[in-house]
Amino acid sequence: MSQHYSGGCEHHPVRVSAEPIDNHECHCNVCKKVTGQHTTHVAFFNHGDIKTDNEAAMKRVPFNADNPNGPLEICLCEKCNAVLMLDDKQKRIRVAVPNVMGYDDAKFPKASYHAFWDESKGYPKPDDGRPVYEGLQPSFVWPKGA
């Protein structure tokens, strides 16, 4: 497997074999709650493009505590509690958050747009020249699941 990016921890080294299929600066309330960050650089990959060793041993918790049966799970190292990836139960995508999941954020491409921004957030609309959307960019198409 050709490696484009790597992250994870010493127990679960995470390997990424492709470029992101979506790469955005997220403004959603779930990312804010989970990361404690005002905005979060999020990269979506096809499900098979992110792998680690001994995936069965990872702890899994709901990404969205308000929707525990939702499709995304946070994968944690069972030994050191490092955040490894977000995994989609439908096996469409896996998600890397470079500055949270052990990646070298400087090696990732810059987020190409702002996602999930709305006026109710209470701060000015981003004006860094990147497009700003109320959801994912309109051209994004979810990959088929397994």
Rank of each mutant, 00 (worst) to 15 (best):
S120G: 11
S6T: 12
D66M: 10
R130Y: 01
G145V: 10
N67Y: 13
P143K: 04
T52Y: 12
G135E: 14
Y5I: 07
P109L: 09
E78W: 05
H24I: 00
C28T: 05
N81D: 12
P62S: 09
H12T: 06
C26M: 07
T40W: 10
E134K: 12
S2R: 12
T40I: 07
K110H: 08
P109I: 08
V16D: 10
C9W: 08
G36Y: 04
G102V: 10
K144N: 09
K125H: 05
A18Y: 09
C80Y: 12
N23E: 08
S139A: 03
P13M: 04
K107C: 01
E55C: 05
M101E: 05
D128L: 08
M1F: 11
H47R: 08
Y103D: 11
V100A: 11
L76W: 03
M85T: 14
P109M: 07
F63G: 02
A57C: 02
F140T: 02
F45Y: 15
Q37W: 07
L136V: 13
P124S: 14
L72A: 14
G122L: 04
A57S: 12
Y103I: 11
N69V: 03
A82I: 03
L86W: 03
A56I: 00
M85V: 07
I93F: 15
G36K: 06
S139P: 02
N67H: 13
V30M: 00
R94T: 07
Q90G: 14
A43Q: 00
F116T: 00
G36S: 03
S6R: 07
D127A: 15
D118W: 12
D104Y: 13
S112V: 14
G36F: 05
F140D: 00
P124W: 05
K125A: 10
N54K: 15
L72Y: 08
G102F: 07
Y5A: 07
Y5C: 01
E119N: 06
K89A: 11
G122Y: 07
H47E: 05
I50Q: 04
K91N: 14
L76N: 09
N46P: 14
D22S: 09
G8P: 14
G7K: 14
F45T: 10
T39S: 05
D105N: 12
V30I: 14
K125W: 00
P126F: 00
C77P: 09
S17L: 10
D49N: 15
D128Y: 09
Q3V: 15
V16G: 11
K125G: 06
D22K: 04
D53G: 13
P98K: 07
K59F: 13
H4D: 06
V42K: 04
G102Y: 09
E119T: 08
G48P: 00
K107I: 02
Y5E: 07
F45M: 11
H27L: 03
A115P: 11
P143Y: 02
H114V: 03
K110A: 13
P68I: 04
F45V: 13
G36A: 04
N23W: 05
T52K: 05
H38I: 00
S2K: 13
P143L: 00
G129A: 07
G145N: 05
D105V: 14
C80W: 11
A82K: 02
T40E: 05
V100I: 13
H11M: 08
K121S: 07
W142I: 02
F44Q: 01
F108R: 10
P98I: 13
V132Q: 03
K32A: 11
E25H: 01
K107F: 03
A96K: 09
H12R: 03
C75T: 15
M1I: 09
M85P: 06
